[in-house]
Amino acid sequence: MRMIRASFLRRSTVVAAGIRVMMAVGIFSTKFPPARASIDTTMKSNLSETLHHPKLEGLRMTRQRSVVYEILMDHRDHPTAGEVFERAKRKMPSISLATVYNCLEALVQHGAVKQVNFERESSRYCPNLTEHGHFHDEESGLIIDVPLKQGVTLSDLLELPEGAQIENLEITLRGKLSNH
């Protein structure tokens, strides 16, 4: 529970880098329970880093979008929307599943993350925007990014039609990891 005692409080709007931020200006004191204070401090520092990512330019970053994006960047384990929701609830208890889906859709449409679909499974979300494939361990369910080797092109591996321009690359490998 956050308690604010204000002797003078005024709201102002600041626009910086296309992001509108509401600020409360005044003299006030706050009282946070210890656990909540540390979460807020961590969230604010990560929020600052999140807002300055080049892929996010032009996207209105709400607190909810920032939390969802931060979760994807911190774990990089290709979570489903349900898994993102569970993690987001720990940071923002009031967030809804619908809001998480809307945030993920906005991030995908803006090109900040990729939506990855595996056969007959829930969509997963990948923050790695470089060209890469995915290895799906069918025993554990683990999904691992598989980078393309330096200097290798698709035409080295595939007989592409003459003049073909690849706009999207999705490589999914399925199997079993021997060390898991």
Results as ranks from 00 to 15, higher is better:
F8S: 10
T13P: 01
V15C: 13
A16H: 15
G18C: 13
M22I: 11
M23G: 10
M23C: 12
M23Y: 08
F28R: 02
T30E: 05
T30C: 03
K31C: 07
P33Q: 08
S38P: 00
D40Q: 12
T42W: 10
K44V: 03
K44P: 05
K44M: 12
S45A: 11
N46Q: 06
L47F: 06
H53Y: 00
P54H: 08
E57L: 12
E57K: 13
E57Q: 13
G58T: 07
M61I: 12
M61G: 09
R65W: 03
V67S: 03
Y69H: 11
L72E: 08
M73N: 09
H75G: 10
P79H: 14
A81P: 04
A81D: 10
P93S: 06
S94H: 04
S96E: 03
L97M: 07
A98H: 00
N102G: 11
H110E: 09
H110F: 09
G111D: 06
G111I: 05
K114S: 11
Q115I: 09
Q115L: 12
S123V: 02
S123R: 03
R124N: 04
L129N: 06
H132Q: 07
H134G: 02
F135D: 06
H136W: 08
E139F: 15
L142M: 12
L142S: 11
I144D: 04
P147H: 15
P147N: 13
K149V: 07
Q150A: 12
G151F: 00
G151A: 01
T153H: 08
S155D: 10
D156S: 11
L157G: 04
E159V: 09
E159G: 07
E162F: 14
Q165E: 14
L169E: 01
I171H: 12
T172D: 08
T172I: 10
S178M: 06
H180S: 14
